[in-house]
Design a protein around this nucleic acid. Structure first.
Length: 603
RNA sequence: GCCGACGUAGCUCAAUCGGCGGAGCAACCGCCUUGUAAGUGGUAGGUUACGGGUUCGAUUCCCGUCGUCGGCUCCA
């Protein structure tokens, strides 16, 4: 164990199994659809896929058929053999496979891999063969199809995918499969998928009455229900406390703005597609804002600034609207109206590192508080090819600011990975990447450097030397948007929010309706102490009331019967099932208040 | 936006081959007065997402629109 380097997935037997399963699937598909053109089929996390250009559509019933055929091929025990070819030989072999020919061109001329990404060195062209199927492939594979356990294999779903991941290319049919070494591992994987469904924020959001969508309001425009309203207010309170301590100033800006603002900011050419179309009044175009930055820039510009004033940190939970493409909407994680935990920090170059790391520290405080540990800090860089299109055209400043960020992160000892071609149009950024319950990746928090827009807004400060300088701007959103944060937290806690975030802290459960009044009296006392409490006066048995409270994941249930009413006490049932019978109310109140005040993780 | 699937009561789901749309939970009205995850009887609830078409007859078959889901692309 110790000292043994962990085996890379690419070198593992499981990788070979999945890669080979993909080939076997391709063989089966081609047997059923001889006119199909085949493209690529790599292993992925938990499985594999293969993309086909099929003459028609394919159904879930077809998957069963294909799966059955795959098992036959496996059972026949065909060896996998590798053969190296020249480009000319490969072209001849795949003469009627246009996608393969394109791959061969890439391999030969550009040194591109199957996704169209540049390769470090020009690879040898090789093919792998088993039974009747031959694929252009660099391998590796299992030695014999029998090394795949046919009972540990399952085809999962059919999806569309663009050839080489480019939306301008043809949409292919992708078949996803999963493969494991043993049937037990497959079973376990399927069980995990089921479990993930149970903590899907869309399911929990409905069950816990956090938010809804309504067809007449529109897609991607969530309505926060009272429970969701409480959670977002708690998050805002948290942000305000933390930002007050860190020297932020709070501002408020309108949802609408004239077109001129986004022309100046430079957002329109980059961003127009994701903006709601403008409304025109008396010859003037107005947009709903897709971000808050330009308005904050205007606040910065509202008066003359001195180096003594910097850094200036302007914060706002700003509501923005982005016209995300319909197919991209996803529960609360990807929406069209969002409330951002936004702030812009205007600082000098000398102050940059401290300010940037101050934001990273803020992230860490939040992540500690929420006990978030499964995330990756991604350093999102520009790509030279995108200059002038996706990115502001100034390679020198890109290099400089990227170096600044890299230096700050390294000096601060913060682990991160670098990702090319993921920057904002105005500068590099650190994105905090998280994964939803069903495995989709999202940026939760973001911390961005902007070296371009302050100049466009003619932002400046008077330096010590008496010359005007342009400040740097840091855009940051450590708590993401309310929408994505609540979606994430729902899954993170599986709906079991810590006390301070729970929409309802305490539910009173009178055993008979003789205790209704006693329960109501306690509710009043709790509310007086800023504890969110209600009583269940429905004509049901106590057991049913407890069940209802448990299903809503209320952290504390106070059961009151004749005994408690007589003694002026309460019996506590905690969400985790633990109990403390006949305790003084004052003692309970202290416990709850302490949990709320400290935002404690425990109940 | 693209490929595919799906859309039945507030929620979770039934409805044979095209032949009078059902159940549980929730809601409402009662009865029971109950000790830590569903006591019980009744009532109400539907233009089967919407709009066309085929048919004697459509929840069911076909077309379109909208929405949702699985992916792709994109992203806080």
């Amino acid at each position: 164990m110790a000292g043994q380097p962990e085996e890379r997935y690419e070198d593992s037997q499981l990788y070979r199994i999945r890669h080979s399963a993909a080939h076997i699937m391709a063989q089966a598909v081609l047997e059923f659809y001889p006119e199909a053109k085949y493209t690529i089929g790599p292993p992925v996390e938990n499985g594999f896929y293969y993309d086909f250009d099929l003459p028609g559509t394919i159904s879930n019933e077809d998957l069963e058929k294909i799966e059955k055929r795959m098992r036959q091929i496996i059972a026949a025990g065909h060896p996998f053999t590798r053969q190296a070819l020249t480009a000319a030989q490969a072209r001849e072999l795949f003469a009627d496979q246009p996608y393969k020919l394109e791959l061969i061109d890439g391999l030969e001329q550009g040194g591109l891999d199957e996704y169209g990404n540049p390769l470090a060195e020009k690879p040898e062209i090789s093919i792998y063969k088993h039974d009747t199927f031959t694929d252009l492939c660099r391998g590796p594979h299992v030695e014999n199809t029998r090394q795949i356990n046919p009972a540990a294999l399952k085809l999962m779903s059919i999806a569309g995918a663009y050839w080489r991941g480019d939306e301008h290319n043809k949409m292919l049919t992708r078949i996803y499969g999963t493969a494991w070494k043993t049937p037990d591992e497959l079973k376990e994987h399927l069980r995990m998928l089921e479990e993930a469904k149970a903590r899907d924020h869309r399911k929990l959001g409905k069950e816990l009455e956090i938010y809804i969508y309504d067809d007449e309001v529109g897609p991607g425009l969530p309505l926060w229900l009272p429970n969701g309203g409480i959670i977002t207010e708690e998050l805002e309170r948290l942000a305000k406390e933390m930002e007050d301590k860190a020297g932020y100033l709070r501002v408020r800006t309108p949802h609408l703005t004239k077109e001129d603002l986004f022309i100046r900011s430079g957002h329109l050419p980059y961003y127009a597609e994701s903006m709601y179309p403008p409304m025109e009044l008396e010859g003037v175009k107005y947009y709903v804002k897709p971000m808050n930055c330009p308005m904050h820039h205007k606040i910065y510009a509202a008066k003359a600034r001195s180096y003594r004033d910097l850094p200036i940190r302007l914060a706002e939970y700003g509501t923005c609207y982005r016209y995300e493409k319909s197919g991209e909407l996803f529960g609360l994680m990807r929406v069209r109206s969002m409330q951002m935990n936004d702030a812009h920090i205007y600082c000098s170059e000398e102050q940059f590192e401290q300010e940037f790391m101050g934001v990273i520290d803020l992230y860490k405080k939040y992540f500690d508080l929420f006990a978030i540990d499964k995330y990756v800090m991604r350093f999102s860089l520009h790509a030279r090819e995108g200059l002038g299109k996706k990115y502001v055209d100034n390679e020198r400043l890109w290099q400089e600011t990227e170096d600044m960020v890299r230096r700050a992160m390294t000096n601060g000892n913060v682990p991160f990975i670098e990702a090319r071609d993921e920057a904002a149009f105005y500068g590099p950024k650190i994105d905090v990447q998280i994964w939803s319950a069903i495995g989709r990746e999202f940026s939760l928090a973001t911390n961005q450097v902007d070296f371009a827009v302050p100049e466009r807004f003619d932002l400046k400060y008077m330096s010590k030397e008496g010359v005007e300088k342009v400040p740097l701007c840091i855009h940051r959103a450590p708590l993401s948007t309310h929408e994505r944060m609540v979606g994430f937290l729902l899954e993170h806690y599986a709906g079991n929010f810590p006390v301070w975030l729970s929409p309802e802290h305490v539910r009173l459960i009178p055993i008979t309706d003789n205790q209704n009044e006693y329960a109501e009296g306690i509710v009043r006392q709790l509310r007086e102490q800023d504890i969110r409490a209600s009583s269940d006066l429905s004509p049901q048995r106590m057991n049913a009331k407890i069940r209802a409270a448990q299903l809503m994941k209320v952290p504390y249930m106070l059961v009151v019967g004749e005994n408690e009413a007589k003694a002026g006490q309460v019996s506590l049932r905690v969400r985790d099932g633990s109990r403390a019978d006949n305790i003084p109310l004052a003692e309970f109140i202290e416990r709850v208040k302490e949990r709320i005040r400290t935002r404690a993780p425990q109940l």
